[in-house]
Nucleic acid binder design. Structure first.
Lengths: 335, 335
DNA sequence: TTGAAAGCGCTAACAG
DNA sequence: CTGTTAGCGCTTTCAA
């Protein structure tokens, strides 16, 4: 059909030079007369001119794009995070390009390289399976700013995290106040920094209550529903009366595993999750959990990164987002 | 740090012309001597040369990118679909750029335009909230091939769908064989084509069993957990003994709504879902549902689109993917 | 106030 | 077999 409208078409139609059009359309046209400016805008609209991205990027060396890497798009926690990012992105000139890295360093590396090739302006990485030294190498070398989520960066960039330690403390205090003393912790074998902070909180509160930590109450598994399901087998061997699960997915798997073993929640086990994913209020019984402002986190992460891209020398920000305990029916007083 | 290596650097270092390097590196170098070829490859590796995408795209008018629009990344059905896409994408030269349109036509339009600006090569659209005429206008005008999922396209492009009608028949037969005669259907107010096919299946089977359809057994609601939850209120007013839910999300919401009303599954209501999302085996009781090969569907969709991009004149394909019934514990014989 | 001219880094006719 | 030449569509000096 109609071939693409180029800047020269606009220039010709408006009776001005290509330079003039370019300057005006890029907001650098203060020096041109109001008349010329309006004329150019009018012609632009009339012809439906849209600047060619590739041509522009070739010069500006930017694609107005931010890459986002998450371990797993299917996890509601990350999908909410992504929704936050997308929401914020619409207010900016940048678009987010999202990938699920499937916890595979090779996949992650592949995407990072692919994104670098495409001259992304920045990266939000919520799935650092690739070693941090390598990441630094890949990214710093290319002067690409990035933001790490759930993992503390080596570099001195912006930092954005939720208050995991407090979150764990809230969960633990809740269980302790209900009278539980044998509290199992179910968490991943290779915890990321944020999970480690939850583990810290677990330990701190036990210490505060002068409870000796029990080796067998520390159950490690995969951070998925399946992982939780499998952990149930371990759990029932212990004398635990309550469980703090590192996230809700895990807790939901645990539900299934325990039910299949004829255990009742909360009669036999009080369970606290973490994340407050959408689903947690639909399971039976609705899950007591710690809510993180993930959606906010996505928005802020994107915004911070855009700011950093625009102003690379800006002082690094450090943001700590609050958490809160949502009490539902999966926990009850120990009789 | 080190400025970017350009093709001219490679050419100089290898003692050949820029053309030679370009041709060889783009696999069009059969005509050059083996010696030259190897030399160029060697220098490329040595210098770590990576072609500039923007410069290349400017000429080829392609960004080796395929846009993917889904209604909602959080829905496990779509996240699995996306995983299939990503899997397949890694085998191609294309990267998928994924967006959740939040069922908002404006958002969808925004992304489509943003993608066109960036010269995407093709689009997979699983969330056609924007009217099809408009879509055709936007995309056909720009000669961008696209694939519609869950919705039949107006144009004569490739078509890929799952056998929804058979799926619905499987679900219904299962319930009827268990003795149910009062079967409610819970589905969205504005059904997409694939949901309509399920509705057809529902009707057909009722007809086959010579059961008069009951108005009040057709419950419409939003296609979400929340929607299912709300539908429970309608459901309990009817004399239904079984429910066919248009998807698993809906069924899970229904679970919660029914439980809050003191109803038991499957004792009071037998429930069949659709999709077999990951979660459906974790809920209590595990959900009987119809499985669609979503992951496969993602892979095939991506592959087909890439084929079409490479060969625009190719004859349109039509692919029908099979479904199957997964029987779990949410259905039982009517006593 | 404006525009001519010089590229950005690459690919691809076309000529040797 | 190889290189010269001419752009892709845009931004950005710099001169008028």
């Amino acid at each position: 059909m109609n071939a693409k409208v180029r800047i020269s078409d606009v220039a010709k139609e408006a009776g001005v030079s290509v330079t003039t059009v370019s300057q005006i359309l890029n907001g650098k046209g203060q020096r041109f007369s109001e008349q010329t400016r309006n004329r150019v805008y009018a012609v632009r609209d009339q012809l439906g001119y849209v600047p060619d991205f590739n041509a522009r990027n070739l010069i500006t060396r930017s694609a107005k794009t931010i890459g986002v890497l998450v371990p797993n798009i299917g996890n509601p926690f990350f999908s909410t995070f992504i929704r936050g990012i997308e929401k914020q992105a619409m207010k900016s000139q940048f678009i987010p390009v999202i990938f699920g890295a499937e916890n595979d360093p090779d996949v992650e590396r592949y995407y990072i390289e692919e994104l670098i090739k495409r001259t992304v302006d920045g990266l939000i990485i919520a799935s650092p399976t690739v070693g941090q030294e390598e990441m630094d190498h890949l990214l710093d070398k290319n002067h690409i700013p990035y933001l790490l989520i759930d993992q503390n960066p080596l570099n001195a960039g912006d930092r954005i995290e939720t208050d995991d330690k407090t979150g764990a403390c809230l969960a633990m205090r809740h269980l302790l106040e209900l009278g539980h003393r044998k509290i199992a912790l179910v968490f991943p074998k290779e915890p990321s920094d944020n999970i480690m902070r939850r583990y810290q909180g677990y330990c701190d509160i036990l210490a505060e209550y002068q409870i000796e930590p029990q080796e067998d109450l520390l159950i490690t598994t995969e951070l998925t529903k399946k992982g939780g399901y499998l952990a149930a087998a371990e759990l029932v061997k212990t004398d635990a009366t309550a469980v703090f699960a590192a996230n809700d997915e895990l807790a939901i798997g645990l539900y299934r595993g325990l039910k299949e073993r004829g255990k009742k929640i909360p009669e036999d086990y009080s369970i606290v999750g973490y994340d407050n994913i959408d689903l947690s209020q639909y399971v039976d019984p609705p899950l007591t959990t710690v809510e993180q402002p993930v959606y906010e986190m996505g928005k802020i992460a994107f915004q911070k990164l855009v700011e950093r891209i625009k102003e690379p020398q800006k002082e690094a920000d450090e943001i700590l987002l609050p958490v809160k305990l949502i009490t539902r029916q999966s926990t009850r007083e120990l009789k």
